[in-house]
Design a protein around this nucleic acid. Sequence first.
DNA 1: AAGCGTCCGGGACGGTTGTCCAAGTTGGGG
DNA 2: CCCCAACTTGGACAACCGTCCCGGACGCTT
Lengths: 198, 198
Amino acid sequence: MARVSAADRRRQLVEAAFRVIGAEGFAAATTRRICAEAGAPVAAFHYCFASKEELFVELTEVTVAALRDAQADGVHIVGGIGASLRETLRQWWATVEAAPEREVVLTGLTHHAMHEPSLAGVAQRQYDAYHRTAAATLESLAAACGVTWSLPVEQLARMLVVVTDGVTIAYLVDRDSAAARGVLDAFAAQLAPLASPS
Amino acid sequence: MARVSAADRRRQLVEAAFRVIGAEGFAAATTRRICAEAGAPVAAFHYCFASKEELFVELTEVTVAALRDAQADGVHIVGGIGASLRETLRQWWATVEAAPEREVVLTGLTHHAMHEPSLAGVAQRQYDAYHRTAAATLESLAAACGVTWSLPVEQLARMLVVVTDGVTIAYLVDRDSAAARGVLDAFAAQLAPLASPS
DNA sequence: AAGCGTCCGGGACGGTTGTCCAAGTTGGGG
DNA sequence: CCCCAACTTGGACAACCGTCCCGGACGCTT
């Protein structure tokens, strides 16, 4: 068996937990199952993490960070603000359809974090990151198209997160990607008139 | 101990499960915990339900039915379609804030149902019920205000569910009811122009 | 070669889980 | 009145859980 540094093992275990939750749900994410998925002995788990909760905290942060990084260069400018917003949403949606497990993991983590005192604040920071990412996207969109939003960016960001969240959950349940795309385009068309030339 | 019919016991256990999941999360909903909450001995559980999954199926159906009934007479007409839509959404939101546990239960159930083969279809029917309820609400709204929707009602219904779902989840995490109301009002204002006099 | 910190991994711990049995108790119909 | 079906219940079962110990194997330093 190849020797692996503790830091690498942590990464392996986090990725294994991601895969297990994405494919089999949060309840299946036992230490044994995660270790088996990572190809590591059970004892390696508590050599790398003080507890299972610690793994969950790191999983949340890593997953949210990956989501934010993916969105960092996710602004697509094509024509006016309306078309750009629609295209940006479509590109984002392509990443969701390419990796739906990510969202399964995030919803499971959110539910879990709401009730575990040791994870209090994790869910909050998770959604804070969502809102900041959405706000940044909206602002660079507006800047690139030479417009300003007629509503506070914070509120628009929240609306964006609401829509993306809702579309994702509906998709996870019925896998109707045509309906998801339709809803996304419709919302883009709705939001566009809220931008006025600056 | 008072003798209770099996049907009543089922109801008691389902309600107990609802309370446990709402307050402590899905993971806390063990057979023992549920029975303790219901004031019933552990053995009563499998006298009433063949398995825990059967309890979950019934919990889902009961909860969704309660949600649909609450929405059945949830259309509020005040002035035009815009004001009526906003008011209807506000009334619905009041019920969510009055009983956030219901949504905690539903999200937990959804996540669970996605991965349990024995619950396949339950989540689908759950969201089907959402969409039908939303479509019915939109149609009676349009009928009462003498307008027709310029988009297919199915799509608008899906948009409505997306928004209500997203707003609810964000609220469960950060409990920011002012932000939730703002987002809801904004969406009502966005959707109203999609109705034209008939 | 020797030492030492790092990592491996089998095995075990106390506790909890879902499920089920077998023996009890109750109450209504004959 | 009794009896059968419906209901109750304490206790047990095997499986699995998170966690942890500890002897051994590795590979870098000196």
